[in-house]
Design a protein around this nucleic acid. Structure first.
Length: 1188
RNA sequence: GCCGCGGUGGUGGAAUGGUAUACACAAGGGACUUAAAAUCCCUCGUCGAAAGGCUUGCGGGUUCGAGUCCCGCCCGCGGCACCA
């Protein structure tokens, strides 16, 4: 038994003193960056599970060094977190103090293992010098608009009055008191990781991750392709047609050639109603005029209106109105009022004809045309209505509505008296405008089953629930919503539970067949996924099936398959009109195209990944370096709108009204050079407006105005909050219209350079939003074409948003999107601390417990909370939430590269030298969160130009857990934890190292075994006695054994098969003992190979044998291929696949010679019994296989 | 339920489609010793006295040859889970 205690210490001190494991920045040698997850230094100290990964990568690090690489293998501490905080709550000791102690313990323990870490780069996430940069990086997210505050659910223990982390609320039970945990909404900081969802998936192709890790990442992000489909909402007609006389009437329902969202065909005559006569001055006409007048003076163009909506310059402010016009074939721009009236009449007449009806004179529609000079034309004079005879009765066909009317479960509506119907009719007409904007969007991965939809379900949390619920259903719906809110997480996500839900009283119109289907709410719909609404196809979805069964809802088979119901697989479409006969894949495509043509839906990709909840109401974390300033929040921001040549007329008025309502001050200068563009003059006229702008203000430029705005901004050299370019025609036009015109600089590249120059740093614009026309080519600043941009963040910080179906002179949809985008830049009152104020350090507190209302303990320190606004100098309050543990660990690998830099988180040239991490090993438990967060973090820093690689880790592998000898997980509570200290003390560091490698395949879990440790120890003792066997000569067996061992060890290390590496060493040592002698040279070669696993033992023997320097600084031993083979080998001869003979044969014989040898074998002759072999297969140096 | 991984001696495990059970543990026997520890040697999948047969969860298939590849099951582990 060797004296391991003395030897271990001696060599560890020596390595440290000589700095042999220091990584050298910018060395000429090839760099290799190996990384293990930095541990949380718990009070319990190191546990045998920790070193498994450290030792394994240490072996690789040592080998790579011996192979001439410049290796960075660092270690640090992920020291923020709950266990320390809970300990502090219990004992009242400051977490910083406890952390320092724990780190000291951990470090001593880790250092006792002889790991070749470069301790000069040690980092500690709780060190203000470290978290200064965590905070600084958080501010980059904030400044890019990627960090935002939003309501989010937290686990709340009502008894302890404290918010719990997910791991403290497992199974819906509070870890502290054992009571049930509730969900509670709280404003939390969120980080927009979902914006990177797609890149986080696609970039996986560029890295080498263990397949299961890659798979888990992909599934966590959860991309699904399908369609988003719009269903118009209609209320139950019962509300409109309240019964008074009890009589019944039929409603005729038909989907006229599948017109988009349907036509309402009601039968007032059947209801006992006289068709409504609309005279000038009547309600309908009054409404139309009122609507038109609302826009008077705000546009230079004629305004067309009816009581349902307004249209200016061919842009429909009301999609229903537009649809009607499309239906009737009206183009207001080209038709005169008389012609319009004519068209409408013709349309109704055609309808009448189609359904065998007769036209009847009645005024059904009112239009007005209001001209800029105040002249008004009323277009409603006489339009013929239609009376239709049908098998179901006589019908009066009215103007197409957005609605279909049908009473639950039947085609009946209830008759009412004339006056009430009139009122209802008016109300209904009025409501069209209200309803037309109300569309329920659903996400589906099976658009091919759209014909099978029999109801719609919303998540109870859906925004629309309150708006669409019918009065009669209100109380029931509210009751249900409340019940759901009270449910715990487990209750809600238990899929085996019986489905629950209630009907809202509202209906939705299926765009594909104009059918009205009921809208329900149910908690089986997840609010956070897709749109929070589902189109239910009970015949082809398990969940919808259960729900429909329970509530007696219709099921409709639209995919032919097995006889099982529900049939959820793919098949052939049936009962689906234009999809019939298509396979599921084909039907999906066809349906999506159809939806896109009809503008009723679109191809859509949805992700499971949610934004990252970044707030913790805790003490022991990085303080979030933001203050809230009421004064800054209240400050009016200016929005400067720079027009193109022509004014955008009516849109201005709408945009202005909406922005002003949101509290912005709007500037819309009219240029004198509108019709004869003169760039310099334009700049001159714009200058005073830009002069007024401050850093909170926003500039919008439309078309050429975008380029003018950008140029004016550059000239004014102003810092503003955001520049939004609306349809700037980036592709053809980016160098500015002016340059193109002068033919000076027509190429895209130069154009883009120009554009990016102003977008980028001089005006400090993180945010340039581009709203592009549908067919416009959009280029990003690296001169690559941006594929199908839509709400994406691109490298310079541009948000590009493509508006489909809009022309260059943006329509109302464009206004809507722009108002949304501008709203994003509205001051929230959250102001970031200047870099000079970082780090914002944790103040000392007395109590570490969260406050009664769930705020962090920081909230109870007035000196911390109350501060001044760094922006306006007024009174402000600090954010008291702290960051999650994942923050510091999202970038620690960057800090190792330049651990002591106090100017930046790491110097660019050093990052460029060391990144990416060549090999990153960690536990499977970190595959989803940590790995995803840090990849995202790195990507964002890459986008800002701070790190050199898109992906932080070139390769990721993981190790299995070390289990206790009883087969359970090691845990304090089970009392089965093995402490590495004890092993190191009693059997030496090398024993622990070698055993952890030998225990089993690195990636698999393995049970700890005391006996196994003893076996490894025995092996090392045998190694220590090898010098006794040193002789002048050795047998050939030993020499060949040495080379075989080297070949296999080298190969096994490359594939991280550490357990077999140790076995190879053992085999070799057994060979030496068997032979009884080894030369000094061979032993020294062996020690060089062994060093990576057993560094202490090998250094000691190396010194004993008088080798030069340190073994760990020798080169990795080479082997001679010819010596890895034995001189003779046992030729295996198989007959019909069974081994029949083994013949000692010299290595290297030819195939023919082997064949002859095999056939000559007596045993083989016996088995052949004179038969002629059918086939003979020869494998050199292995076997001969004979088939008869 | 879905996805991934695995199932080989008493145990941990080894095996680019080519001699299944390397290496180690445990067990048994022996040597050394007054004895113990340590060390060293031998045996060690299974049936069989042997020759030889059988054996990698089960059943098929491909192949001269299958632990390994393919199909269908069974079992275990890990992850996700009402994601439409």
């Amino acid at each position: 038994m060797y004296n391991h205690g003395e030897i271990d210490k001696k060599w560890q001190d020596k390595w440290l003193a000589e700095g042999v494991f220091k990584a050298e920045d910018f060395s000429e040698k090839p760099k290799k960056y190996l990384l293990v997850e930095f541990p949380f230094p718990s009070g319990a100290g190191l546990h045998v599970g920790h070193p498994r990964s450290y030792v394994a990568l240490d072996v690789l690090a040592r080998k790579l060094r011996m192979q001439g690489n410049n290796v960075l293998y660092p270690m640090g501490w992920d020291a923020f977190g709950l266990p320390t905080e809970n300990y502090a709550i219990k004992t009242g000791r400051p977490p910083a103090e406890v952390t320092a102690e724990n780190i000291a313990t951990f470090k001593a323990q880790i250092q006792s293992l002889g790991l070749s870490f470069d301790w000069s780069r040690e980092v500690n996430s709780t060190d203000p010098g470290y978290y200064k940069w965590t905070q600084w990086q958080f501010l980059q997210f904030f400044k890019a608009g990627l960090a935002y505050k939003a309501k989010s659910v937290i686990n709340w223990c009502p008894k302890d009055k404290i918010g719990l982390a997910n791991e403290e609320a497992q199974g819906g039970i509070c870890e502290r008191c054992g009571g049930p945990v509730e969900k509670r909404e709280k404003e939390q900081w969120m980080i927009g990781i979902t914006k990177y969802a797609d890149r986080l998936i696609t970039d996986l192709e560029t890295v080498n991750y263990l397949p299961k890790i890659q798979k888990q990442q992909e599934e966590w992000i959860g991309k699904s392709e399908g369609a988003e489909i719009e269903f118009s909402v209609v209320q139950n007609p019962q509300i409109l047609f309240a019964s008074t006389n009890g009589g019944k009437a039929k409603l005729f329902r038909e989907s006229f050639d599948k017109i988009n969202s349907g036509i309402a065909v009601v039968a007032p005559s059947d209801l006992g109603i006289t068709p409504i006569e609309v005279e000038e001055g009547s309600d309908l006409m009054e409404n139309a005029e009122k609507k038109a007048r609302a826009y008077f003076g705000k546009t230079d163009l004629p305004i067309l209106a009816n009581d349902a909506g307004v249209e200016i310059e061919g842009e429909n402010l009301d999609p229903a109105f537009a649809r009607r016009n499309a239906l009737v074939g009206i183009d207001e721009k080209t038709l005169s009022p008389e012609e319009i009236a004519q068209r409408v009449t013709e349309f109704y007449s055609a309808l009448a004809k189609k359904y065998g009806g007769t036209a009847r004179t009645a005024i059904h529609t009112a239009f007005v045309l209001l001209f800029p000079d105040g002249r008004i034309e009323r277009v409603s004079s006489t339009i013929k209505g239609v009376l239709v005879e049908t098998p179901e009765g006589e019908l009066d066909v009215r103007m197409p509505l957005n609605n279909l009317f049908k009473v639950d479960g039947s085609d009946d509506v209830v008759a009412v008296d004339g006056a009430k119907v009139h009122a209802a009719w008016t109300a209904m007409n009025n409501s069209i405008a209200d309803f037309c904007g109300k569309k329920i969007r659903v996400f589906t991965t099976r658009p091919d089953t759209l014909f099978g939809v029999t109801y719609i379900t919303l998540a109870p949390e859906h925004d629309f629930v309150k708006e669409i619920v019918s009065p009669s259903q209100r109380s029931e719906v509210e009751k249900y919503v409340a019940t759901v809110a009270r449910k715990t997480e487990i209750e809600r996500t238990d899929a085996t539970r019986e489905k629950t839900g209630v009907f809202t009283g509202a209906f939705a119109v299926n765009p594909v067949n104009a059918e009205r289907v009921p809208i329900w709410i149910s908690d089986y719909v997840l609010a956070g996924y897709g749109t929070g609404a589902v189109m239910a196809v009970p015949a082809h979805d398990e969940r919808d099936f259960e729900f429909a069964k329970k509530f007696g809802l219709e099921m409709r088979l639209v995919v032919a398959g097995d006889d099982v119901v529900p049939f959820t697989e793919e098949g052939i479409a049936v009962n689906s009109e234009f999809l019939n006969g298509l396979t599921t894949a084909e039907a999906k495509q066809k349906m999506i195209s159809w939806l896109e043509e009809q503008k009723a839906g679109a191809r859509k990709i949805t992700y499971k990944l949610r934004d990252w909840v970044f707030s913790r109401q805790r003490y022991w974390g990085e303080p979030i370096p933001l203050v809230h300033c009421d004064h800054c929040a209240a400050k009016k921001q200016k929005v400067l709108f720079v027009h193109a040549f022509g004014s955008t007329g009516s849109k201005d008025a709408i945009m202005r009204a909406q922005l002003e309502a949101l509290g912005f001050e709007v500037l819309m200068p009219r240029m004198s050079t509108v019709n004869e563009p003169d760039f310099e003059k334009w700049m001159e006229e714009l200058a005073p407006y830009f002069e007024q702008l401050g850093e909170d203000d926003i500039v919008i430029g439309h078309s050429l105005g975008g380029h003018a705005a950008a140029s004016a901004l550059l000239r004014a050299n102003k810092k503003i909050k955001a520049l939004l370019l609306m349809a700037p025609s980036l592709g053809e036009f980016a160098s500015g219209y002016w340059e193109v015109r002068k033919q000076e600089n027509p190429t895209h590249t130069a154009a883009i350079d120009k554009l990016s120059a102003f977008i980028a740093r001089p005006v400090d614009l993180q945010k340039v939003s581009v709203l592009a026309d549908a067919k416009e080519v959009v280029w990003s600043d690296d001169d690559t074409r941006v594929p199908e941009p839509t709400h994406e963040l691109y490298p310079t910080g541009w948000y590009i948003n493509r508006v489909t179906g809009q022309n260059h002179f943006y329509g109302t949809a464009g206004v809507k999107i722009f108002v949304e985008m501008i709203t994003k830049y509205k001051n929230t009152g959250w102001v970031s601390l200047p870099d000079s104020a970082l780090p914002l350090t944790l103040p000392p507190v007395e109590k570490y417990e969260p406050t009664d209302n769930g705020e962090s303990p920081l909230a109870s320190i007035p000196e911390f909370v109350n501060t001044t606004c760094p922006r306006c100098g007024g009174a402000a309050t600090r954010e008291t939430d702290t960051m999650p543990n994942w923050a510091g660990s999202s970038w620690y690998f960057l800090r190792y590269i330049d651990a002591h830099n106090d100017k930046e988180f790491a110097a660019a040239d050093k990052l460029k030298y060391w990144m990416p991490v060549d090999l990153y090993n960690g536990g499977m438990e970190h595959t989803t969160l940590h790995l995803l967060y840090s990849r995202f973090w790195n990507k964002f820093m890459f986008d800002l130009g701070f790190v050199p690689t898109v992906e932080p880790y070139a390769r990721r592998v993981s190790h299995g857990l070390i289990m206790a000898s009883d087969g359970n997980k090691m845990s304090k509570s089970k009392g089965n934890v093995v402490n590495p200290d004890e092993i190191v003390r009693e059997q030496g560091a090398d024993t622990l190292r070698a055993y952890e490698l030998f225990i089993g395949p690195f990636a698999e879990p393995a049970p700890w075994s005391e006996n196994g440790v003893a076996g490894v120890k025995r092996f090392l003792d045998r190694v220590m006695r090898l010098p006794e066997k040193v002789a002048a000569a050795e047998s050939e067996e030993v020499t060949r054994g040495l080379h075989k061992m080297l070949a296999r060890v080298t190969e096994d290390l490359d594939r991280m098969s550490f357990n077999t590496v140790v076995a190879q060493y053992m085999t070799f040592v057994n060979t030496v003992y068997g032979a009884g002698a080894i030369t000094k040279d061979s032993l020294q070669i062996f020690l060089r190979a062994l060093n990576v696993v057993a560094p202490h033992v090998s250094e000691e023997l190396w010194a004993q044998l008088g080798g030069p320097g340190l073994v760990c600084q020798q080169s990795w031993p080479q082997f001679t291929h010819s010596l890895t083979l034995d001189e003779n080998f046992e030729l295996v001869v198989q007959v019909n696949g069974k081994v029949r003979d083994r013949i000692q044969t010299p290595s290297g014989l030819s195939e023919d010679e082997l064949k002859k040898l095999a056939l000559a074998s007596l045993k083989v002759q016996e088995w052949l019994q004179g038969k002629e072999p059918q086939k003979i297969v020869v494998i050199k140096n292995k076997l001969v296989s004979i088939a008869i």
